[in-house]
Design a protein around this nucleic acid. Structure first.
Length: 332
DNA sequence: ATAATTTGACCAAG
DNA sequence: CTTGGTCAAATTAT
């Protein structure tokens, strides 16, 4: 805990708080389980995620094996070497020659699309992203897509992500997140879940997602560099860096990212489905993919090999990995 | 009309 | 030099 950065500490607190909150939800869930069997399990998953993460943070200097047979399909394991030594770090945002380059907090996860699951399901965690670039990566078969939070201009949200399709397994997408969400979408997540009793449609939708999610959930932590650091180049006025617990949330307002290559059309996703799932909100995106395997990468600036992991269920404070499929060509 | 994406150019880092 | 990340104009979608 000593060499823990402020950011990590906050994350830790958030995790624990979240875990507590989730537990409460779970309790409520157990007492009044109308019809959804999914929710309790989901909650368990999330709780586990929270606690695992918290533990990892606390033990960031020791080698902690988080291997632990999770409830159903969840498996967490670590791996140490990134798939390829790509130098994915260059933020041109820091141009100051004096300042040594700060690495944005960065964590990655891999998402596998399982053939056989509904490919029309938008799998999104509630953030809306805007693509701002695409690049062919050396050695990679598929180009990498660059996205940033679409609320960037409005709220100065710095979050970015990269989506890279796996070379061999086109069903796998590596998503690297960097930066933290400072937009108010960042915190809305968890709480909608418990009160989503009115909207049946979206609830069902959520369940579907949960189902596909549970199918083969796999989380692997990997080491990356995550730096505790702040936001270098944004008018501090815009970036409310303060990130508290997810106690406040505003109704999701954004949502767009349409697109459906040659696959099924976005047809079904025209409704505003803003209920949450997995601790995230689901948006009318039409991205042909499913989640089946996720693994995450994260590490602290310390030199410990492996460190944290996160879930797409809003595992970490305000980070909500989002997944957006970018329609890169299938050709190199 | 506006908003999002595409795509080549540009730039920094290695 | 090469490579990855971002910008921004042009294009496409809404």
């Amino acid at each position: 805990m000593e060499n823990m950065g402020e950011w990590e500490q906050r994350s830790l607190i958030n995790e624990l708080t979240q875990g507590r909150e989730l537990t409460r939800q779970l309790q409520a869930c157990l007492h009044a389980p109308p019809s959804s069997n999914q929710t309790p399990e989901l909650l368990v998953l999330k709780i586990q995620a929270s606690y695992e993460k918290a533990l990892l943070m606390l033990n960031s200097n020791t080698s902690l094996s988080i291997d632990q047979p999770q409830s159903s399909d969840l498996a967490i394991r670590m791996s140490e070497s990134p798939p390829s030594p790509r130098s994915e770090d260059s933020d041109r945002d820091f141009k100051e020659p004096d300042k040594k380059r700060k690495a944005l907090p960065r964590w990655a996860q891999q998402v596998r699309v399982t053939p056989g699951t509904a490919l029309e399901e938008p799998l999104d965690d509630g953030f809306s992203w805007r693509k701002y670039g695409q690049k062919d990566i050396l050695g990679a078969k598929y180009p990498r897509g660059y996205y940033r939070c679409s609320l960037r201009n409005v709220q100065g949200c710095l979050a970015r992500k990269q989506v890279q399709r796996s070379d061999e397994d086109p069903t796998v997408f590596e998503i690297t997140y960097r930066g933290t969400h400072t937009c108010n979408l960042a915190s809305r997540v968890m709480h909608q879940e418990q009160q989503g009793s009115s909207n049946q449609q979206s609830q069902k939708h959520s369940q579907d997602l949960v189902l596909s999610f549970r199918r083969e959930l796999e989380v692997i932590t990997r080491d990356l560099d995550i730096g505790d650091q702040t936001f270098p180049n944004y008018p501090s006025s815009m970036a409310n860096i303060k990130v508290e617990n997810n106690l406040v949330f505003s109704p999701p307002v954004v949502g767009n990212n349409h697109f459906a290559e040659n696959l099924s059309s976005p047809a079904t996703s025209s409704r505003m489905n803003s209920d949450c799932l997995l601790g995230s909100v689901d948006f009318p995106n039409s991205e042909p993919q499913q989640l089946a395997g996720i693994y995450q990468t994260a590490a602290s600036s310390t030199n410990s090999p492996t460190v944290g992991f996160d879930f797409p269920f809003g595992g970490a404070d305000q980070f909500h990995p989002n997944f957006t499929f970018d329609n890169n060509g299938f050709f190199s």
